[in-house]
Design a protein around this nucleic acid. Structure first.
Length: 201
DNA sequence: GGTAGGATGGGCT
DNA sequence: GCCCATCCTACCC
């Protein structure tokens, strides 16, 4: 499987998909293929960050230079810099002027695995290549230069793969936050070995 | 198998 | 000045 073959067997997810309730988008992104150039993988782990009283969301304190794209039209990338070293990818949801985005936490590598391994020398197993929000941006070479990028055209897109197999979905609290820490807004492909944090039971 | 601590810099009060 | 939607290494069972 390479990216050319993947493109033949899949369609880019349209903007209307993103212009919905954030939690629904987060759930429905599972099983879709995140592509950046030659590398791609199946989304297996997501988190919803809502508007309103979700104080864990970057948009909670309103529009700033950083959070502007979260308030913009759906289907765009929100990429932010964290802990001085890593970048995280979010996909903007909800209609324009309504904040909301989905953090992509992990992918199961599909194409361009050799390229991803070069970019992630610390990963000793395929399971470690992109099993975290900072790992997958490194593996796919996604940076702040792509902040605001349109996810419905160009190198960075999400695709619907027709050979996608069925799976069960597990819902848990979000990882690594302190505010609204018990809200069940994380969506995981149940039993998948590539998720960012194993769920027992 | 497990976890504690450090790296490292931008955003916001 | 403090917080932070993380990751890796070293070290310990």
């Amino acid at each position: 499987m390479d990216t050319r073959e993947l493109a033949r067997e899949s369609r880019i997810v349209p903007r209307s998909f993103y212009s919905r309730r954030t939690a629904d988008v987060a759930r429905d992104l599972l099983g879709k293929i995140l592509v950046n150039g030659p590398a791609s993988g199946m989304i297996v782990d997501t988190e919803a960050y809502l508007g309103g009283d979700d104080l864990a969301a970057h948009s909670a304190r309103g529009v700033t230079d950083r959070t502007r794209v979260i308030f913009g039209p759906p289907g765009h990338a929100y990429v932010y810099f964290i802990y001085g070293m890593y970048e995280c990818l979010n996909l903007v949801t909800e209609p324009k002027d309504k904040p909301g985005c989905v953090l992509i936490r992990a992918i199961e590598p599909l194409t361009g695995i050799d390229v991803m391994q070069k970019r992630r020398p610390a990963a000793r197993r395929i399971e470690d290549l992109a099993s975290g929000p900072g790992k997958l941006t490194r593996a796919l070479s996604i940076t702040r230069a792509q902040n605001g990028a349109d996810m419905t055209s160009g190198n960075l897109v999400v695709r619907n793969w027709k050979h996608q197999r069925q799976f069960e979905i597990e819902v848990t609290p979000r990882i690594g936050i302190t505010k609204c820490a018990d809200w069940p807004l994380r969506y995981v492909v149940k039993g998948n070995r590539f998720v960012s944090w194993f769920v027992s039971g």
